[in-house]
């Protein structure tokens, strides 16, 4: 379970002995078989489709199995503008995904509302309701950007701990697996943001 000493591993490898730990094996298997949830919201979904198709071929990273059911998915790619009408459904789908689950917020709209930020019906970022692992800027981001985000996610999965205080969220019984679904209020979603999840960056203006 514990980390393997790098020098010892190299020494053993030179003698033809390959050693690994449970954590490495577990993370290696997970990071190379990320199954995304098959759903697209707007034009970013077209780029997501292009990423899955033969030219960019996300299958090289083990992520080609787009699942139509949240029960079989590990990764949610929020690809496109999230309207307030759609936000409760997305949170519900996220809640229905089994642990461990990850979220890629793809494009300006999913990050912050993007060019439609002033729209009355546009959610200003999906990270108000569910925790996001990787953000990709762009409008829309190119397939290479999505592949980069995918690799970043693989790096994150690879670095997750199996035990100890800093272990991955899905291994910690105290960490929640479901997040409250917002409801339609009179003017806005209720609540407008989940404060346990949403930690916006503080803007410090110099006077």
């Amino acid at each position: 379970m514990s980390e393997i000493d790098e020098a010892l591993r190299n020494e053993l490898q030179r003698q033809g002995v390959w050693v690994t730990s449970m954590q490495e094996l577990y993370n290696w298997g997970r990071k190379n078989s990320i199954w995304p949830l098959q759903f697209g919201l707007a034009c970013c979904a077209i780029e997501m489709i292009a990423t899955a198709a033969s030219r960019y071929d996300i299958a090289r990273f083990g992520g080609e199995v787009f699942r139509p059911s949240p029960r079989q998915a590990d990764l949610m790619i929020v690809a496109g503008t999230v309207t307030k009408k759609m936000a409760p459904q997305i949170v519900r789908l996220y809640n229905q995904m089994p642990d461990p689950k990850y979220v890629i917020s793809m494009g300006a709209c999913a990050i912050s509302g993007g060019p439609f930020k002033q729209g009355y019906n546009v959610l200003k970022g999906i990270d108000r309701y569910i925790p996001v692992d990787v953000y990709i800027p762009g409008c829309p981001p190119r397939p290479e950007a999505l592949l980069h985000a995918f690799m970043e996610l693989q790096r994150k999965i690879d670095s997750q701990k199996l035990t100890g205080a800093s272990r991955a969220e899905h291994l910690d019984p105290a960490e929640p697996s479901e997040f409250p679904v917002p409801s339609f209020g009179e003017h806005d979603l209720e609540p407008p943001a989940n404060r346990d999840v949403f930690h916006p960056a503080k803007i410090e203006r110099q006077s």
């Binding site: 059911s69 229905q96 089994p98 479901e178 679904v181």
Partner: peptide, 14 residues
């Protein structure tokens, strides 16, 4: 980590 929505029968988000 079971939950009311995770164990829901319908799985299309609605």
């Amino acid at each position: 980590k079971p939950g009311a929505q995770k164990n829901a029968i319908y799985e299309c988000g609605v």
